[in-house]
Structure formats: structure tokens, C-alpha cells
Computed example of a mutant assay.
Amino acid sequence: MPVTDVTTDPEALTMTLTAEFDAPVDRLWDAFTNPRQLERFWGPPGWPATFPTFDFEVGGHAVYFMTSPQGEKSYGSWEFLEIDGPQGFTVLDNFANEDGAPLDGMPTMRVVFRFDATGTGSRMVNTTYFASAEALEQVVAFGAVEGSTMAINQLDRVLAGLREYAAGKGTQTEILDDTHVRITRLIEGPIDLVWRAHQEPELLEKWMLGPDGWRMSVCEVDSAVGGRYRYEWEPVDGAEGERFGFDGETVLAEAPRRAVTTEHMTGTDYPSTLNDLSLEEEDGATLITLLIEYPDKQTRDMVLATGMTEGMEASYARLEGVLAAV
């Protein structure tokens, strides 16, 4: 992971994050000063960022918001105080309303982004200066250390490019914490087709099958917010196993990039999970990222022990063949 250290200093009134990257300084600079690239890592998992305004000049402003799986938006704004490319820049950082105006009662921070060359690539030192110890404590209590760490740890895939980062690696499962798991898979195919393959029953029935020997016997999808879906599978050709299914509700839909749904095993009293699907396209390939939120660690471990990753890899491999034929 790129982040090597996060330190808070109540005496100096600072929080300092340090991260190491294989990419050169110029590439790191581009990632932080191009809003479309910044959007791909600035928000932590489950809270992706959008920068509708990015006026990158001294005295200019950036406005961004991060969107939760339930559609809640948290706004922030930057005023660019100093720009010294590609070595770094300094901003005045505010919690904001949807117009970018600072929120009353919330702290304002001065944030210095510094990029330096190393023997293997580059180092980022991000130092946040607070006006008081109370302001530092308040921001740390909001989860700033954990959130910034998870956000910056996503930057390596942006710097490397999606093919270098994920091609040929199959389905990857990462445990983020006790209740969150992130699954990634690069698919050869454009984002619009990958989105359709997750929403249209006639395509879903061809690839979302898990291991060989199963067929999807029920596929009902209403992808509008508040709409419900139901999937069922059954063994064929003498395969072992019993019929099972999942049902749930669409919580958030932002075609063709993000869909959030609940997932419940039909006919059981097992608790539901929250499945946050996001898609990124680069050079004709699409990275699927599925962030799953479990109710507790026990449920997380139980599901992972079923061979979920292997089953998803079989389905995703089948998906590439389906897309090639569309």
C-alpha cells in the first residue's frame, strides 16, 4: 500500500500523511491536478469524489463532493493559495455546502501537498495545519486518518493505468476491515457494455452463473432506485447442489458508473449485505470494483469461506466472452 505513515501532532497542530509511489513526480503531479484523475482516488472506498469545479490557479477554487452508497453527499472546497508545479501546491480546505461556501462551525485547514523524487519513484507528503487542537481533534474524530489512508491507497492503480494494475490478475479480493471487502476484476470491453451486462436479464443469464454446471433460472431486474431484483440458480447436467437465490433493492443508480444494491439470500433470515458496484474504463478495458459491506466479521468470513472469489472469477471470465459476442 502506498501510505507509509500518518501522524497527528497536537503541539504543532498538524496531521501529516506520507506515501511512496513507483511513478515519477510528473505523473503524481498530473494525478492531483487533473480533476478526472483526482476523482478516481480522492474519496475513500464507498465515498467516491466528484469535482464539478476545478479552477487550478492561485486564487482559484475547487468544489467537490463525496457520495455515500445511500446517495448522501458530503461537500468540500479548496482555495488554491500556492502552486509550484510539479513540486506541490497549497490549498485552504473547507467543509462546504453544495455551493462551495464554508460551513459555519466547521474548521478551516491549510493543506500543503509536497511531491519529491526518490530512488524508486516519488514521495508525497501531505501536511494539514489546524487553527487549534480542538479543530484537529474534531477532524480526527470524523475519521480523517482512516479515510485519507484508504483514499490515497487507491492512487497506485491510477498512476499505473488499469491494464498494468489489473490485467491478467483475475478476480482479486481484499479485506479492508472487519465489515468491508473489495473485489476487483479487469474486463476487456467498454464501460457501457459492462454496465448493460450487469443490468439486462438477457445478458446476465449468459454470464452470472458461477462454476460450470449451473444455470440462472430466475433473473428479474428493476435497476431504478427503489426497484427490486431477484436471481435464482439451479444445478444442471447432474451437478451437485441445491437451488438457491438472492433478492434485494436498488439503493443508488448512476449509469454507467455506479450501482448500489442490497443483497439477501432468499428464503433465509441471514442479514443483508450492501453491494457497491463501480466501473472505470481506460483504453477499452473496464475495471469492475465491488465493495461489499457485511453486517459483521463473522458473516464476512463465512461468505469468503464459500469460495466466492473462485465463483466470481468463473463468471467474469464468461462475461468477457459474452461481451466479445455482443
Rank of each mutant, 00 (worst) to 15 (best):
L92A: 09
A239F: 04
D22V: 11
M302Y: 10
L203F: 05
G119I: 06
V145F: 05
G76I: 08
E98P: 02
V322G: 06
L92I: 08
T268S: 13
K206M: 06
E240I: 11
F244K: 03
P201V: 03
E281R: 02
S278N: 08
F80D: 00
G245L: 06
L159E: 06
V111S: 10
R300T: 04
T184H: 03
R36M: 13
E134W: 05
S148I: 13
Y270I: 13
G321D: 11
L162H: 04
G43P: 00
L252S: 02
S148D: 14
G227A: 02
E232Q: 14
E20S: 11
R36Y: 13
M109E: 13
E72I: 12
S77I: 06
M109W: 08
D99F: 09
F65E: 07
L204I: 12
P102G: 05
R110F: 03
V3I: 11
G43Y: 03
D99N: 14
E293P: 04
D301C: 01
L17K: 04
Y316Q: 08
F56I: 07
L279S: 01
I288M: 15
N126Y: 13
P86Q: 09
P45N: 10
L277S: 01
T120N: 15
D84R: 12
V225L: 04
T306F: 03
E202S: 14
R110K: 15
R230H: 14
L38V: 01
M208K: 15
D26C: 07
A96W: 10
G210W: 00
A285Q: 12
D9I: 01
Y165K: 12
L136S: 01
Q87I: 03
L274I: 14
M312L: 15
T128F: 08
Y270M: 14
A253P: 01
R196L: 12
P235E: 02
M265S: 11
F56P: 00
E220M: 04
W47V: 03
D222F: 01
L204P: 02
L193G: 11
T14F: 05
W207K: 03
H198F: 13
G213W: 05
T53I: 12
A19Y: 07
V236S: 03
V111Y: 04
E205T: 14
A255S: 14
I83F: 11
G170S: 05
F113A: 10
D222L: 07
A255Q: 10
R230V: 10
D276M: 09
M15H: 06
S132C: 00
G284T: 00
